[in-house]
Computed example of a mutant assay.
Amino acid sequence: MAQILTITLNPTVDLSTSAASVTPGPKLRCTTPEADPGGGGINVSRAIRFLGGESTAFTAVGGETGALLLRLLAEERVRFTAFSVSGGDTRQSMAITDQSTGEQYRFVMPGPYWNHDMVDESLNAIAAAATVDGIVVLSGSQPPGVPIDYTARLSRRLSAHGIQLFVDTSGAPLHELVKHPANPYVLRMDDVEAEDLAGRALPTRTDTADFAQALVERGVAENVIVARGSDGSTLANATGRWHASRAIDPADVVSAVGAGDSFVGAFSMALTRGDTFQQALCFGTAAASAAVLTAGTQLCSAQDVARLLPGCVLVEV
């Protein structure tokens, strides 16, 4: 089985709590907070672990918060490789649920600043940690100071060694990757990001598939996945276009946090065990669906994924 290395340049210690109501002004008395290791790649590795798989989480860490992050990873038995940064402490993020409405408020900090040397050192360290014929998953935001073409640099470095790169990014780095294609193995985005890139609405699955296929034809990525929220996910590559969906009762949705990371973890895990892209798309969709059934910063559970997977509907688009 091919090995998975997840990359988190801007990890976080995720704190989740709740209050009777969230209103400005008075002190808000919160429930006892829960702390989880967080950040895109870390959550991908955690999801893989929850599903019974293995990966290594390559994560940048700094200061006391970084030390706490590593302790939390160890407690969850997630294998990791730490990359020390000197630009400040690892960030913290907070999710607060308003008990009166069920609405969730998420506060995300920027993270430590990276200088030029740290950027170059990280590229070298990732290339050294990755295994030939393995999969590297780059997921999550970039810290301040990291150039927007970082993903392209990493893609070129890894492809020269036969290593497949799965990218799940957003904002300026995503726009840069589309503007100057580096052709990673897989590129994933959500529907809001896709519509922003397309400059138009993508109301139907066909619209989404057309957009994803156009990116493939331009060499932006070999495989493009667009998550369409509760409708599931669409995948396009040189051989076809598919959509996987699983109906979830809106009343059962507890938190949208972690759905994307759960998808990426399950999808990557499925590919390394030899599943087809269609099978991986369904497995990822079931994991994303399972994640929305959990509270706070929790991810998918193997039991929920196993229960939801048979109901996944795969169609050609």
Rank of each mutant, 00 (worst) to 15 (best):
F58K: 01
L165P: 06
L271F: 01
A280R: 01
Q104N: 06
L281G: 08
A227L: 07
V224M: 04
T97Q: 15
A125F: 04
M1L: 13
L5P: 00
A290Q: 01
A221P: 15
G232P: 02
L28R: 01
L202Q: 05
P11L: 07
A127K: 01
L73I: 08
L138H: 11
V216C: 13
P181R: 07
M189H: 05
I42P: 03
P147I: 07
C300F: 14
R273W: 02
V317R: 14
L158H: 07
S159C: 12
T65D: 13
D210P: 01
P37F: 09
E121W: 08
P181F: 12
P24N: 06
F166N: 03
L235R: 02
C30P: 09
P181Y: 09
G260F: 11
T131R: 14
D252L: 09
V257S: 06
T239V: 08
T97V: 15
I148N: 07
A306Y: 01
I48L: 09
I148A: 07
S155G: 04
T276Y: 02
V186G: 04
R200V: 08
N183R: 15
T56L: 10
L154T: 09
G284K: 02
F263Y: 12
G52I: 05
T32S: 09
V61Q: 11
P26M: 12
A290T: 08
G88W: 07
Q298P: 01
P24R: 12
L309S: 08
A244T: 06
T234V: 15
M1D: 08
V137Y: 05
T234C: 13
S301G: 15
L174G: 04
L28H: 04
S122V: 07
Q278P: 02
A238S: 13
V78A: 12
G88L: 00
A221W: 14
Q164N: 09
A209W: 03
G62I: 07
L174C: 05
A295D: 09
I4W: 06
E222Y: 02
A57L: 07
S230C: 03
V305P: 08
R49F: 00
A306V: 10
A130V: 08
G40F: 13
I96F: 05
V264H: 10
T81G: 06
L15V: 14
A287H: 06
L308R: 06
G162E: 12
L308A: 07
A212S: 10
S230Q: 06
E222Q: 14
D196P: 02
C300M: 11
D36S: 14
T8K: 01
L202I: 14
E222W: 00
L314E: 11
I7D: 10
T272I: 11
T169N: 03
H180L: 04
T6Q: 08
N183P: 00
D98L: 05
L154F: 07
L187E: 13
C30V: 15
A227K: 06
R153D: 06
R218M: 15
I4Y: 05
A302L: 12
D168G: 02
V220N: 02
M1E: 03
L197Y: 08
A291R: 04
L68T: 13
C312D: 04
Y150N: 00
I96L: 15
F267Y: 15
A160P: 00
D89A: 14
C282N: 07
S233P: 00
T90H: 10
L70M: 09
L235Y: 02
R307W: 06
